[in-house]
Nucleic acid binder design. Sequence first.
DNA 1: TGCCAGGCGCACA
DNA 2: TGTGCGCATGGC
Length: 303
Amino acid sequence: MPAGTSVSQPAPDCRAVFRACDYDLAATLSSGQAFRWHAVQGGWEGVILGRWVRLHASGKQLCAQTAVPGADWRWLTEYLRLGEDLRRVLRTLPKDAPLQAAVRACRGLRLLRQEPWECLASFILSSAKRIVHIQQAVALLCERYGQAVAAPPGHRPEYSFPTAATLAACSERELRACGIGFRAPFLREAARQVDRGELDLAQVAGSDLETARRQLMQLPGVGRKIADCVLLFALGFTRAFPVDVWVAKALRELYFSGQSITLAKLLQFSDSHFGPYGGYAQQYLYHYMRTTRSARPLAKTAN
DNA sequence: TGCCAGGCGCACA
DNA sequence: TGTGCGCATGGC
């Protein structure tokens, strides 16, 4: 049975079980890719494409529960990229000691494939914010401007991520009231362009990497790093390599003996060194630095 | 109270 | 081409 195939196939149900070898659900959902997951009683709860879902890992299986019955679980298997063969991906990565150490420390960490608009909007909010603050801002935006979604009886209310049209209709003051500060006009402009079709994220996904990156970076408040996050976490560009303060620190410490290498040189190095699945390498290095090495990045990312 | 965060944009050398 | 700073906010 291929990975990602539902093990139990009863009539439309609120539960499903998937084979998920080599899948570290906790690392994947807590590694700063997505901002709507909460650890609850040994599992993880979140909202994907307007569906509340609870996930928990059990050995080589992954159990899912929703609030609304359904027979088609592709929305979940695609989000979790359950069909991706991790061993094949890891074989493409360079065999250098730092990366192999990161892979050993975080084995099972996966990339997600998120809804593009939600991913873009979330990372516009991420600029110079800690992950917990991004989560708070996203939660507030959803609560105020998303739609209520079905959740189990007695469960707290859950909301979808607000549409581009809804956020485009908000004033800057309303958005700032969600705690996003100077990012408010950036979010509003991105929402406006997506809503009017001036930026077609599906079309961006079909472009080559350089074109797609350039299209995203024409948005105010979206530079190379945020663009690469959207390319990697939502649009399927596995070569994209976002360099934030943590990844810059990882590259400088692990590959350049702590020298003050410029961001441009780090990008040049990452582009040539890590290969077609460099985005995985980036995520392993990021999670490795945050969870097993020093507590804080020391140097700011140069422009 | 100061520091800093999954940055970006701009001025300046 | 590289460096430094301001921009909001909240937790430590």
